[in-house]
Design a protein around this nucleic acid. Structure first.
Lengths: 124, 124
DNA sequence: TTCTTATTTAAGCAAATACTTAAATACATA
DNA sequence: TATGTATTTAAGTATTTGCTTAAATAAGAA
């Protein structure tokens, strides 16, 4: 299972232990944050998030039109993001509008700014 | 292929077209950014990135010890991040030290700060 | 050169992901 | 009520991902 065959001479034991403490202390936070970032790390979902940032609210049909994708595929992406609290919904008759939650809008703002300025190729 | 069966009555055509323009203009940026964020959206890699942020540099063996994982598995994670310019290496005899590139340290800083304060549960 | 340490790479596999198609649900209107 | 519009959900599939094991590469020491 664990082939930790690190039998090296030089290792900063203090450093290793400090790091182990950090990891065990923040373990749940790492999982939580990575889980959310994995959603953003998909170009379809990143586009959806950015479009919602710009347009405030859009429905499944709008996004399907804009991205040239199957409604069902879009709906499933939206569901994931809603389940993990990146998005919230508001019904207007038959139409369901999706929008960014305040928390995630704030958190993702630095990335939206990069995209806004389309300066990604220089910055990253 | 494209079952865009959105035959709806109300659609803000201007909005749809504006969004389509945005997507086509920024298309490569979306792909590029999503690709990088997908790397961060994995808890093992997020831990590695955070540990490198705190400790400045670590080798494969260190990370293997700290995370209790197979050296090969860690090495493959590091390779991915190096290939996509999140990390850089520096050799010291047999040991290869990994560190964050300045660009990505800056870009990921907001997340590191959240983790630093361990305030993730309130913030996100 | 041979041996040891440090690391990477290749091959294989199980689990997760993203999409398709088809069926189901929800609401509005005739 | 029946019909149409908007959306979700379920099931199936192909691709990608993350890990394991084993072999390969690289550098220092004997």
């Amino acid at each position: 299972m664990e082939n930790n065959s690190c039998i090296r001479q030089q290792a900063d034991i203090e450093q290793i232990n400090r790091c182990k403490d950090t990891v065990s202390e923040l373990n749940e936070s790492f999982d939580y944050l990575a889980n959310r970032l994995s959603l953003v790390g998909n170009s379809v979902r990143l586009k959806i998030l950015y479009l919602l940032f710009e347009e405030k609210r859009l429905c499944v049909c709008d996004l399907s039109d804009i991205l040239g994708m199957n409604i069902s595929a879009i709906s499933q992406h939206l569901r994931k993001m809603k389940d993990r609290n990146l998005l919230e919904t508001e019904r207007d008759a038959q139409t369901i509008f999706y929008s960014l939650t305040a928390k995630y809008e704030k958190m993702l703002n630095p990335f939206f700014e990069i995209l806004d300025k389309n300066k990604i190729l220089e910055t990253i």
